[in-house]
């Protein structure tokens, strides 16, 4: 359960970090978000990753939890990269009624 929770937090974290980058805002939203919003998203993204670390460490023990957290970071970053690579496909899917 801790694993699922950690993964969810990491996914949300990397999602925010992805959208906090100007070039990806341009790609996904066709516009750049205001600097203040971007900053909040970036801070929020890192905060979620940090929260995931504390959740994972307190749930699984700090040694074991740290390892698992690193692994879930990789998984969720890969998910963000995959989503970004398939952006056009995802947007086409969403455009259909």
């Amino acid at each position: 359960m801790i694993h699922v929770f950690t993964l969810a937090l990491c996914l949300a974290g990397f999602g925010l970090l992805l959208m906090a980058m100007g070039r990806h805002q341009q790609d996904w939203l066709r516009r750049k978000l205001p600097a203040a919003t971007t900053r909040k998203m970036r801070r929020g993204g890192f905060a979620l990753l940090a929260l995931a670390f504390f959740a994972c460490g307190s749930g699984l023990g700090w040694a074991y939890g740290t390892l698992a957290w690193c692994g879930w970071l990789t998984v969720s970053a890969l998910a963000a990269v995959t989503a970004n690579t398939n952006r056009e496909r995802i947007q086409r899917l969403k455009a259909k009624p």
Binding site: L17, L18, M21, H24, C70, G71, L73, T74, A77, L78, A80, V81, T82, N84, T85
Partner: peptide, 28 residues
């Protein structure tokens, strides 16, 4: 380029794949 993985662009794609696999698993 953290989230960048572009396929079908020759050398650029190989570089992307090399970077993404390295950075995403860098702690490991």
């Amino acid at each position: 380029d953290f989230f960048m993985l572009r396929f079908g662009k020759g050398q650029r794609s190989w570089l992307d794949a090399h970077n993404v696999t390295a950075v995403l698993a860098l702690p490991f």
